[in-house]
């Protein structure tokens, strides 16, 4: 009897364990398909759903938030997808969220991606129809990838040619095999480093200079910043301008004067014209000047004679003595 009870006990555990796992399995699948727990319905309309099926996941910001409940064809270009979304996600999904058809990985199941818009909006309500985006077309993607592959093939071919050229280039390998190259390179890099440091210093100096100028110090600073200086400069420029104008006016007057003189000289009368044009007067003037010179020489002889005369000798001596006294004082 005891053995029979023990067998019944074992059988009971066995059966319950099997049923428990069955229920667990059904519950977990049901939970994933949003059968248990509160949900609400959202809709989106697409031109092409790319093989989406009822039961496929709906993701909001990458989180599984629901499943596709139903797919209905409204007309030849509109397909309505009804989605069951977990109630707890309702506050986060806004009316301006965009629904697109995507896939779980490159070869995975199709799914609906809900993307939040950056513009704030009210939260969704039951049976709201969301905006839909264009689904990623795998065929189009493959076509683009095919184009990219062709480009890649061209690049690889070019690369191959380049590598062949490099491999066959004696000059390149000479350079590569040159043992002194790393040393020179290192040295060059050191020089570059030093130059860079020098340039940094220069840039720093330049910055300091610019700051100096900006603060209005120095001639350039004054020139750029000092308003008084600028005013004076403007005034000076104005004066120069006025002087220029006056010079123009003087130049005109001089020109006029010269023209008058020229006209008088060529056509007029008077001493100057006579001096320039009448040769007889010129001869007479030369004779007169020669006579004056002779007179002056005779006068000079007379004066020398006077110095030796006893009547005027005392006077000239006193003159000499006064000159001698004044010379040491100077």
């Amino acid at each position: 009897m005891a053995k029979k009870l023990a067998n019944h006990f074992r059988l009971g555990i066995f059966v319950l364990a099997g049923l428990f796992f069955l229920v667990l399995l059904l519950y977990m699948i049901g939970k994933n398909e949003n059968i248990f727990g509160s949900t609400f319905v959202l809709k989106a309309r697409f031109e092409n759903i790319n093989g989406l099926m009822p039961g496929n996941n709906v993701r909001f910001a990458g989180i599984n938030t629901g499943t596709v409940k139903d797919i209905a064809v409204l007309n030849d270009s509109t397909i309505e997808v009804t989605m069951l979304i977990k109630e707890k996600m309702k506050p986060f999904i806004k009316k301006n969220a965009i629904a697109t058809i995507g896939s779980d990985g490159l070869m995975g199941n199709k799914l609906v991606n809900l993307t939040a818009s950056k513009i704030s909006a009210e939260e969704v309500n039951e049976n709201d129809i969301l905006l839909s985006g264009k689904a990623v077309d795998t065929d189009e993607l493959i076509k683009v990838m095919g184009g990219a592959t062709d480009d890649l093939a061209l690049i690889v071919t070019g690369l191959k040619t380049t590598i062949n050229k490099i491999n066959n280039s004696a000059a390149f390998w000479d350079v590569m095999n040159d043992a002194s190259l790393p040393v020179n390179l290192r040295s060059s890099l050191m020089n570059v480093k030093q130059s860079t440091a020098g340039m940094n210093n220069m840039v720093n100096d330049l910055q300091a200079m610019v700051r100096h100028v900006q603060s209005g110090k120095g001639s350039i600073g004054s020139l750029l910043v000092d308003t008084t200086f600028a005013h004076n400069l403007n005034e000076a420029v104005e004066r120069v301008k006025r002087a220029g104008n006056m010079a123009d006016s003087i130049s005109i007057q001089v020109t006029t004067l010269v023209r008058n003189i020229d006209r008088n000289l060529n056509h007029g009368e008077g001493i100057a014209t006579a001096l320039l044009r009448d040769t007889a007067i010129v001869h007479r003037m030369e004779n007169s000047l020669q006579n004056i010179q002779k007179g002056t020489e005779a006068f000079h002889q007379n004066m020398e004679a006077l110095k030796t005369n006893f009547l005027f000798r005392g006077y000239f001596r006193r003159q000499d003595q006064q000159k001698k006294k004044q010379a040491p004082e100077d």
Partner: peptide, 10 residues
């Protein structure tokens, strides 16, 4: 059999 199948799956 179904119970055995469930346990076997598990």
């Amino acid at each position: 059999m179904p119970i055995l199948v469930m346990l076997s799956i598990c």
